[in-house]
Amino acid sequence: MRYLSAFLILALVGWAASCKKDPVNPSAGEKNLTLNFKAQFDGQALPMFSDVVVSNEESFQLQTLNFFLSYIEIQKENGDWVTIDSSAYVNFSNLVDVSDAESGVNLSYSLAEAGNFTAIRFGLGVAPDLNAMDPADFSSATALGDAGNYWTAWDSYIFTRTEGKIDTLPNASGGEISFLYHSGVDGMYQQKSFSKAFNLGQDVDLNFTIDIKEVFYKAGQEIPIADNNVSHSGDSSTADYAIVKTIITNMGQALELQ
């Protein structure tokens, strides 16, 4: 009887304790890793809806720039990779002032992982496993949950958007040409990896730039906007596919970690 009483008391105490939740401090021991992305043109901050004069006396204006990143991972000293986000969306479309453009877009993560890290990698675009899914599979809190980022005709997310206009006659009328390039479909996914030593014993900022001049006017890889001003990707055998594949390839190469 004495043991039974003791058991019942312990059981009661245990049950009561199970109902209590220890206070959680989610930030205890965690550090912030911020990935900052800045759009530039020839090294200068590039606000949306601002004209820049390119070397051939053509005026260029970017109005929309956004892209998905997939599987952002950082590498520990021992070589192991730590995934910090399966998908992120970098959207410059609201950065219309120089000061906003100079500030760029931040992706911020609170991480419990500490210690030394040697590299960061991610995919530019939507990784094939995620691209096999549908906006209805995701919360509206994520860009993958936004049907506007999905192109049903190709059963694919829109990996990158670059839209704007050029003026081939900046000192006369009649030279304006709007452009729209949307990349999608699995074959366009770009893997990027950057070596960088950092220690997450403190908050860390990693600063990326993407030079749009290197996307549209890269020597030998110029985008013929005046000849083909619109592409939604498409079948890999088409000129539409080729032009957007060049754009997303150039974007991947123009992304630099400072």
Binding site: A136, A147, G148, Y150, W151, A153, T238
Partner: peptide, 29 residues
């Protein structure tokens, strides 16, 4: 641009009024 190849005519409506089979809202919010 349906069925995996560029169509001969495209009214481009679905860019803004986008939909998928499981999320057929016909708007991209």
């Amino acid at each position: 641009d349906a069925l995996g190849s560029a169509s001969t005519k495209d009214a481009e409506c679905a860019h803004c009024h986008s939909f998928t089979r499981d999320a057929a809202i016909f708007a991209r919010n």
